[in-house]
Write a protein that binds this DNA or RNA. Structure first.
Lengths: 173, 173
DNA sequence: CAAATGTTTCAGTTTATACTGAACGATCCA
DNA sequence: TGGATCGTTCAGTATAAACTGAAACATTTG
């Protein structure tokens, strides 16, 4: 698709679109653009190329690459007799999706649930039955979400099966 | 729980925690704090009280209340012989959850999917089979998500049943 | 071990988002 | 009809998030 140093118009458009679209995944604009670049590039790419092609600073590129690696959606690779770091996208988009989901649950959902549980156990809201009920329902909702997410995300294979099953079993919207 | 003009320490703590936690739902801090205020308050509350109790401007309170109403998570109510607008939270937290999910799909997911489909149909990425495959997989992933979400969210009752089923059927994380 | 090459960090800056409060418009009531 | 009450809007301001670029750090090689 793309050469090492510039992008075709089509690829470029994809990169920019993915930039906004990536917010859905929880990536910021630069991270999403970089990820898109890898998605449309077969060859391993190194930091300088990323910065140059996307017109961002090396510092930003470095931080984003690190973060994308933390999320497990790109990998660092090396070429023989070349000490530069190259990066490639995780080839399987479903794996990518699951990795991000797992990571976001860990970073965002789990602390929120702990916080909520802590609040509801420490504090006494019970002088109003209606309020009490609502907060209990809220905890139930979060706990249920936790159970389902935990199950779907504990194991990628299980998750994929469940997704396939859901797709077949659910009535058409 | 709370009187009309101030909050108990417990309620106050809940409001502040929900403020950060609400980002998970897609609300900003003020919206989440206001929503939390309604969750721990039985009586209908009016704009001035919201602004005063949460220490935010009337303008901000007004905009947030409007937005929360758009999301369908609070309702406007009136007292006889009183022309002020009062607001109460949707009492059912699952309904609240579904309304927000429906709204976010509409606002965030659907346009993203359209964008992606448009890109993949208009542009030709096919000179690299690997890249082409990845983009097709991506479209498949989004389409599948669309089908599942559409089904779960098309009807609240269906959605609730599916959630209950999932909870029972899935293996423990 | 010094120079060259490649990577990371972070203080300062830019950009995007959220918030304020005064002005305006609408509705009610004397 | 004119003042009072209540709600909304929006230009300006504050806060938070993202990004830059130069300096520091690490690694390799002659």
């Amino acid at each position: 698709m793309s050469t090492a140093s510039s992008l075709s118009p089509a690829a470029s458009q994809f990169v920019e679109s993915w930039g906004s679209l990536g917010v859905l995944w929880g990536l910021n604009r630069s991270m999403a653009r970089i990820h898109a670049l890898f998605l449309v590039t077969d060859e391993p790419v190194e930091l300088d190329q990323v910065a140059k092609v996307l017109n961002i600073s090396r510092g930003n590129a470095s931080m984003c690459l690190k973060e994308l690696r933390n999320w497990g959606v790109i990998q660092r690779v090396h070429k023989p007799a070349d000490r530069q770091d190259y990066y490639v996208a995780e080839p399987d988009v479903w794996t990518t999706f699951f990795r991000i989901a797992v990571e976001r649950k860990k970073r965002e959902f789990d602390p929120a649930l702990n916080n909520l549980r802590h609040l509801l156990s420490e504090e006494d809201f019970s002088d109003s039955p209606k309020t009490q009920k609502r907060l209990e329902d809220m905890e139930d909702l979060f706990s249920t979400a936790n159970t389902i997410l935990g199950s779907l995300l504990s194991n990628e294979k299980t998750g994929r099966k469940a997704v396939g099953l859901l797709k077949r079993v659910l009535p058409k919207g």
